[in-house]
Design a protein around this nucleic acid. Structure first.
Length: 572
RNA sequence: GGCAGCGUAGCUCAGUGGUAGAGCAGGGGAAUCAUAAUCCCUUGGUCGGGGGUUCAAAUCCCUCCGCUGCUACCA
């Protein structure tokens, strides 16, 4: 059997994520996972929280909690939000797990043994006031180029110049404001990425045709600009400790950089999954000949691309062990909010918990986000657009079709699948169109072209409305009951079809639609049969159960209220 | 500053050498099963500006303008 391994970029632990994070990694990965399961592939869908690093330590400090407790709480929040969005992870792990610690240390030992790690001493910013080393961007001061007085140590936001923290005039800690800033030597491990350029280039070249242009162009850019060796350790507390046997004991107290251990957590979380169910198959997904039948998909926003096309592959290649590299890498652009950026600090835009707090089915979000995924360029969420799409596509085109067909069946055919008559030319033409559209829909999902896939799904709903208009059972019923019966039987079969086709993107609505016709399995299988067969499978005489109103519309008042509420400035 | 992506109808976007497309919105009509929901027809664009290559350019090349992102210690 074909095996499909899917990972979503790990959401950082520091607070609930906004819709941009959802649309750029977790949600499309979920749609693929469901699609893959529906087709009968053995599927493993993995995600986790990315917990280590300075921002976590500082957020915990601010919250007055120890880091572990802070992460435990945030993990629970994020896991809950993901569940409520019906993200069907087989396992939602944590990069702070024992499994990840073990694997991260293992990879580091392999790299050290193979000579791909080097101990180097570099100058780091130390804040005496905070009693800790600070990442460059946590030092602020006056820009030596433009005089902007809140320039960050890595880059001036005002003149966009790249800076070194030692260049700042009047440097101070962004954490405490302390001006007691010291530059101290610190010893770190560097990963010799530069030695892997030919191998990486060959790797990227081999995926020119099956990765988005966005992804390969980012990867080539890094290679073309001259790949530098990268520090993979940090002077912080919260992380995977560097083992004593690496670096001749010179790295005592250091931890690995979060970007070193985070991708390894894809594997770590797989082991967490296996350990939790006492199953020792985790390695067959990742390692050696046993993983040959696995196709591995990664999903991420464009900011993550360098780490997945360069950093992580170097870790894997440098281990000289046969760990699996990604096969299909899907990258996304940004989702904007009402023409601007989502802002975590100003709480501008819709976050996962916000979306869940509104009286809207989760499937509204899932459908809109996939239909408007930022694939070829950044895309923009506006309440007006969201309401327009939901009201038209889900309420009018899909929901109303289910409603009109099932209601008519109850009114005129005793709520049972009518038995009279045979399918004719109209039905044959419909089947031919749907065969073609479903093929296209399937291929778009296989090709990870979600926006186009949703367009095709919508076109399928429209085709059903066109058919029922031509078949006009309400007209024929008065003079030719048999002809009306044929139209309604086809209509009911179409409703059943929608339960199948909509499941990967709208699991709850799909289940409700399917249940209108008959009980739904937990995984609603993909329709592989020709439509002439699939759309003629409901047993005549079988009772149906028209659902309560499937969807309801978003009102102008709601649009106005929510636009105000999430603007990030009006909220006081 | 450098690099990358983007710029196509009022809006959101497809289209990478061969007569400019879809959905929404707008206009007209049909139908009355249905959540006034649907279906049919239709208005609308010198494809960001300019130059070039070509029998032919939204598409390839040059240049300019605009927007966005990245620029390696935030993740």
């Amino acid at each position: 059997m074909k095996r499909v391994l899917i990972t979503s970029a790990l959401p950082y632990i520091n607070g609930i994520k906004h819709l941009g994070t959802l649309v750029g990694s977790m949600l499309p990965a979920d749609v693929l996972a469901r699609f893959s399961r529906a087709r009968g592939h053995e599927t493993l869908f993995i995600c986790a929280t990315d917990e280590h690093g300075t921002p976590t330590e500082l957020a915990a400090l601010e919250a007055g909690k120890d880091v572990r407790t802070f992460c435990d709480e945030q993990y629970a929040l994020q896991k809950n939000a993901c569940e409520r969005f019906h993200l069907s992870f087989d396992h939602f792990g944590r990069s702070s797990s024992a499994q990840n610690r073990e694997l991260t240390q293992h990879f580091a030992r392999q790299l050290w043994k193979n000579g791909f790690l080097e101990v180097r001493t570099s100058k780091q910013v130390y804040s005496i006031g905070d009693g800790r080393f600070l990442p460059d961007r946590y030092v602020i001061g006056t820009c030596p180029h433009c005089g902007y007085d809140r320039a960050r140590g890595d880059q001036c936001e005002n003149c966009t110049r790249v800076l070194d923290p030692v260049d700042l005039i009047n440097p101070r800690s962004a954490v405490s404001g302390s001006t007691e800033i010291d530059i101290r030597d610190s010893t770190h491990l560097f990963l010799k990425q530069s030695e892997f350029v030919p191998q990486l280039r060959a790797f990227i070249d081999s995926h020119r045709n099956d990765w988005p242009n966005l992804v390969t162009s980012i990867a080539y850019k890094w290679l073309d600009e001259g790949l530098q060796d990268r520090g993979i350790t940090r002077d912080v507390e919260w992380g995977v400790p560097v083992p004593d046997d690496i670096g001749d004991g010179k790295l005592k107290g250091k931890v690995f950089y979060v970007w070193f251990d985070a991708p390894i957590e894809y594997i770590g979380a797989t082991k967490e999954w296996a350990d939790a169910i006492n199953n020792n198959s985790w390695k067959t997904w990742w390692y050696g000949p046993e993983s040959k039948d696995v196709t591995y998909y990664e999903f991420m926003g464009k900011d993550n691309v360098p780490f997945h096309t360069v950093g992580f592959p170097v870790t894997v290649m440098g281990s000289s062990e046969p760990w699996k590299l990604v096969d299909r890498l899907k990258g996304f652009n940004w989702l904007e909010y009402e023409g601007g950026k989502f802002s975590t600090s100003q709480h501008r835009g819709v976050f996962m918990d916000d979306a869940l707090s509104l009286p809207l089915p989760v499937d509204y979000w899932r459908y809109w986000l996939m239909a408007n995924a930022p694939e070829s360029s950044d895309s923009n969420f506006t309440w007006e657009h969201f309401a327009g799409v939901i009201n038209k596509d889900l309420n009018d085109v899909l929901g109303n079709f289910v409603n009109r067909v099932t209601k008519f069946c109850v009114a005129r055919f005793e709520g049972r699948v009518p038995s009279e008559g045979e399918y004719g030319e109209e039905e044959k033409a419909l089947c031919a169109e749907l065969d073609q559209r479903i093929k296209a829909y399937t291929e778009f999902l296989e090709g990870l072209e979600f926006r186009k896939a949703m367009g095709e799904l919508r076109a399928i709903w429209v085709a059903a409305n066109e058919y029922i208009t031509r078949a006009a059972p309400w007209t024929h019923f008065k003079t030719d009951r048999t002809r009306a019966a044929v139209g309604i039987r086809m209509g009911l079969n179409l409703v059943h079809l929608f339960g199948h086709l909509s499941w990967p993107v709208m699991p709850t609505a799909a289940r409700a639609i399917h249940t209108a016709i008959q009980e739904a399995p937990s995984i609603i299988p993909w329709p592989d049969e020709p439509m002439a067969q699939f759309l003629d499978q409901l047993e005549p005489g079988q009772a149906i159960n028209p659902p309560e109103v499937l969807f309801s519309k978003i009102t102008d008042e709601q649009v106005g209220e929510w636009r105000m509420r999430f603007s990030g400035t009006a909220a006081i």
